[in-house]
Computed example of a mutant assay.
Amino acid sequence: MKVSGKKAQSRRAIIAAFCEVVIERGYARATLLETARRAEVDNNAIFRLFPNKRALVFAYYTEKLHEVRELLLDTEAYHQYPLEERLTAFFETLLVLHRPNREFIQHSSAVARYSPLGALSGHLQVKAAARELFDELIIEATDIDEFADHRLFRHLPALLTEFLHQLFVFWMLDESPGYEQSTKAVYVGVRAVLNTLQDRHPLDGISRDSIPQPPVLASAMNMRRLLRSLLLSGVVRDGEEEPT
């Protein structure tokens, strides 16, 4: 959801207040009325924007996607970045924005237990927002000619959206100082994606020291799994050659 002006400010204030309430009370005891009070908005206003807590949880994730986009567009000379640097900056900035709300993310993960179908719908909404942003990033990139004719290039937004999900799972389990293992995961994941589009081995040019640890988590970044998931989901249409 893209909004602007006063409505956008209210939306962000509500999301920030909800994070506070969930951290203090847990997801089960958090209420929209308490959220409205802390955000200093009318009770009717919060229900117009968010019919339930589940909607607020997924609004948090989509809002962070748009926040990182705004930050990147404000970065000096960002429009001159090659695609690899754009993607790396996107993932790293997104993780930094999530850091203050790590506890909220842990608490709000309970939404799937309370409403599995609603959670599925919310996940699909977040993935759609991520794919839209990746589409924009790729279109705006100034140095993508080397990928333009690759059979998987048009599926790059789907690949990156899947990688984002895997990276987020990795980050939530990362206990390294400064989340340095997640930083490694960003580098390896982006490089692996671009290597794949250049018909190179996913880990070509990536040193062993750059691979995030422990290996069981690093395996989540395996490009063969990502490509296979695309095939199984029907992203690569019939008649196209299956990646090996």
Rank of each mutant, 00 (worst) to 15 (best):
F58I: 05
P116T: 14
Q80K: 10
H79E: 12
E40V: 13
V96C: 12
T75Q: 11
L94W: 02
S121F: 02
E40A: 12
L72K: 01
A45W: 07
L83W: 00
N43T: 04
E67K: 00
T88Y: 00
E85H: 07
L73P: 08
V41A: 07
K127T: 08
D74P: 09
F58L: 03
L87M: 10
F91H: 03
P100V: 13
D42W: 04
L97P: 01
Y61L: 03
E84S: 14
R113A: 13
L117S: 14
V96Y: 13
Y114I: 07
H107I: 13
H79A: 05
K64P: 05
L49Y: 12
Q125F: 05
F47K: 13
T75M: 13
Y81F: 07
A110W: 09
K64W: 00
F50M: 05
Y78W: 08
L124I: 06
I105W: 01
R113H: 15
R48L: 09
R54I: 11
F50I: 03
Y78F: 12
L97T: 11
N101T: 11
R48G: 12
N52C: 05
E85A: 05
F47T: 15
T62N: 03
I46Q: 02
E70R: 11
H123G: 12
S115A: 08
E70Q: 11
A55R: 06
F91W: 07
H66D: 08
N44D: 13
S109K: 12
L97A: 04
L87N: 00
L65F: 06
A45I: 14
L120K: 15
L65C: 08
Q80V: 10
F91K: 04
A55I: 10
A59F: 01
V111N: 05
V126M: 12
A89H: 07
E63T: 06
L65I: 15
L65P: 02
E67T: 06
P82I: 00
Q80R: 06
A128I: 06
L65H: 03
Y61Q: 05
F90G: 02
E76M: 11
D74Q: 12
V111M: 00
K53C: 12
H123I: 15
K127C: 06
R54L: 10
A128W: 05
R48S: 12
R113W: 10
A129S: 05
V126D: 13
A89M: 04
A110Q: 15
E40H: 14
L117P: 04
P100L: 10
L120F: 09
V126P: 06
N52F: 00
L120I: 14
Q106D: 03
F90W: 02
L71F: 02
E76S: 14
E103H: 14
F90R: 00
Y60E: 03
A129N: 09
H66Q: 08
A128H: 08
F47S: 12
G122N: 02
L120V: 14
Q106Y: 14
L94Y: 00
P82V: 00
A59N: 04
H79R: 09
I46W: 02
L87R: 10
L117I: 13
L87K: 02
E70F: 04
A110C: 07
